[in-house]
């Protein structure tokens, strides 16, 4: 059979949308930005669909496009350091998040902790821990060796857990 690369890409975008959205959500700071990121990534994927090689997993190909777009956007912005708006972060949890300590506790603190990771660490966390990609696929998407993925992932995990332990010790949030 002969399905065109363009069609394979279109099918892949539709079929794996939830996966791409989770990835974008891990990179962006809120759902609206994440959906904008997915849309921008999809537009680029469609624009270059003719060059898609079906020998590669469509998810890996699109993840890479989304990651590259995200990286480009971040580079364009002035380096502003960690900038997590507490009110915005709470709003992400929904109305109940502001009202219930139990509800907001783990996911809220975890979200803030991840937001404070360096971008290259956050990407690895997003791909491997949040989206379940293999080390090999994450390395392909990020354009780094598998060993680099592992070292970033390990350090990110350490930072994440230290941050959460620190919050726990202080008995406060972030």
């Amino acid at each position: 059979m002969a399905r065109s690369p363009e069609r394979l890409v279109r099918e892949g975008l539709v079929q794996h949308l939830p996966k791409f959205r989770r990835f974008a959500l891990s990179l962006a700071r809120n759902q609206a930005d994440a959906d904008d990121l997915v849309q921008a990534g999809f537009e680029r994927a469609l624009a270059k669909a003719r060059s898609y090689n079906p020998a590669y997993k469509i998810e890996t190909w699109v993840f890479k496009i989304i990651q590259n777009y995200w990286t480009d956007q971040m580079r364009k912005q002035a380096r502003r350091g960690t900038n997590v708006d507490i009110d915005e972060a709470y709003s992400l949890m929904g109305e109940d998040g502001r009202q219930s300590v139990e509800t907001r506790d783990l996911s809220f603190k975890a979200r803030l902790a991840i937001e404070q990771l360096p971008e290259d660490h956050r990407s690895v966390v997003a791909l491997v821990l949040v989206n379940g990609e293999s080390y090999k696929d994450a390395a392909e998407i990020l354009g780094v060796p598998v060993g680099t993925v592992m070292s970033r992932l390990y350090r990110a995990r350490q930072t994440l857990m230290q941050q959460l332990d620190s919050d726990h010790t202080r008995g406060g949030r972030a």
Partner: peptide, 14 residues
């Protein structure tokens, strides 16, 4: 636990 925490961070919004 680190993996659980990372997934939990985004679970409410998926």
């Amino acid at each position: 636990e680190s993996r659980t925490v990372a997934r939990a961070a985004y679970a409410p919004m998926q």
